[in-house]
């Protein structure tokens, strides 16, 4: 079976790899590139633990082939912090206790980021809708909503 030479940008760094057709993007990130902040929680595209930004758009990386990311930009949780400074969404999750076990957190934060990129002042309903492709079993979502509201406020101030 064929393999493919791909080049992509991951968190701003150029990466290249020789990948089999069937390699899932999540495995490329986790195993080839050792970016293990992107997690796997289901097989059926329901849980969103594997959420990454593909050209800025949140997608479930367990349902994207690595080869489909050829030539594109991927942002994972590891790419949120810039120059030693936390992204406001990271601050928000810490500040508002938006995480417990931390397993869904990277995906939640990336979905939150993408929402805030297109909506600077989301309502609670809009936040809940935006994270409805990400399952959390620990927090009951209350503090995740607050964390994203916190980040929105921080980002408006900047």
């Amino acid at each position: 079976m064929a393999t493919h030479r791909i080049e992509l940008s991951v968190n701003g760094a150029k990466q290249s790899a020789e990948v089999p057709s069937r390699l899932l993007l999540v495995h490329l990130l986790r195993e080839n590139l050792r970016l293990t902040g992107t997690h796997i929680g289901c097989d059926t595209t329901h849980c969103g633990a594997c959420t990454v930004l593909l050209d800025g758009t949140p997608v479930k990386s367990c349902t994207v082939l690595a080869v489909q990311a050829d030539g594109r930009e991927v942002t994972t949780v590891e790419g949120l912090e810039k120059d030693g400074k936390l992204h406001p969404i990271q601050e928000g999750f810490w500040e508002k206790h938006g995480l417990q076990c931390g397993y869904c957190t990277p995906g939640m934060m990336l979905s939150g980021c993408a929402l805030l990129a297109r909506n600077k002042s989301p309502s609670e309903a809009e936040i809940r809708e935006a994270i409805s492709g990400n399952l959390c079993r620990c927090t009951g979502y209350v503090n995740i909503v607050k964390a994203i509201e916190y980040a929105a406020e921080k980002m408006r101030e900047r």
């Binding site: 969103g48 949140p58 997608v59 492709g133």
Partner: peptide, 9 residues
């Protein structure tokens, strides 16, 4: 349809 992340693709 599905959820917002799925709808992005």
């Amino acid at each position: 349809i599905a959820d917002p992340l799925v709808r992005n693709l």
